[in-house]
C-alpha cells in the first residue's frame, strides 16, 4: 500500500505564484497516480481559490503568505488553503445564476461556482487571523491504490 502523503507550501499573494502552484499540484497528483481528469479539476479549483484571495483578500499592499496543504489517502484528496486576509466565507456567496441571459452574465462569482462543482465537499473555517478553506475531492475507483 502507498502511504498517505502530504505536501505543504507557502506562496506569496501574487498571481505569479500560480505557475509554482500548478507544478506542485501536478507532481503531487503524478506521484499518487491521480487520474488526469481529477488533476485538472484540482488544479482549476485551487487556482480559483488562490486567485480570489490574491485579488480580494487584502486591504493593504504588503506581502502576505498563503499556506496550502495537500493530503491524500486511498479515497480522497484534502486540500487546505489558509490566508491571513479579511474574513470571507465563500460558501455564503450567492449561487451563480447559470440560466441568466448573456447580457446579464458577469464573470464575478464564476470562480467559486466552478470550485463548488469541481470539488465534492467544501468547508470554511474562520480563524482569528484569517480564513481556512478545505476542499475535498474523492478519488475515482480506478485511481485508488491498494
Amino acid at each position: 500500500m502507498i502511504a498517505d502523503e502530504s505536501v505543504e507550501l507557502k506562496l506569496p499573494n501574487s498571481l505569479a505564484a500560480l505557475t509554482q502552484l500548478h507544478t506542485i499540484v501536478g507532481q503531487f497528483c503524478q506521484r499518487r497516480a491521480i487520474h488526469p481528469d481529477t488533476e485538472f479539476k484540482i488544479d482549476l479549483a485551487l487556482e480559483e481559490v488562490f486567485t480570489n484571495i490574491v485579488r480580494h483578500g487584502y486591504d493593504d499592499s504588503h506581502p502576505h503568505e498563503i499556506m496550502i496543504r495537500l493530503r491524500s489517502n486511498r479515497d480522497r484528496i484534502r486540500i487546505s488553503v489558509e490566508d491571513d486576509g479579511r474574513h470571507f466565507n465563500p460558501l455564503l456567496a450567492p449561487a451563480l445564476d447559470v440560466t441568466a441571459a448573456l447580457a446579464e452574465r458577469r464573470v464575478g462569482g464564476l470562480g467559486i461556482h466552478l470550485v463548488r462543482h469541481l470539488m465534492d465537499q467544501l468547508r470554511y473555517q474562520r480563524r482569528p487571523d484569517g480564513n481556512r478553506l478545505i476542499l475535498i475531492k474523492r478519488l475515482r475507483k480506478e485511481e485508488k491504490r491498494t
Partner: peptide, 16 residues
C-alpha cells in the same frame, strides 16, 4: 489545455 474563470471572462467579453 486549460482555462479558468478569468479566461472564460475574456471569451465572454468577445462574444458580447
Amino acid at each position: 489545455e486549460y482555462i479558468s474563470s478569468s479566461g472564460l471572462g475574456a471569451l465572454l467579453m468577445l462574444l458580447k
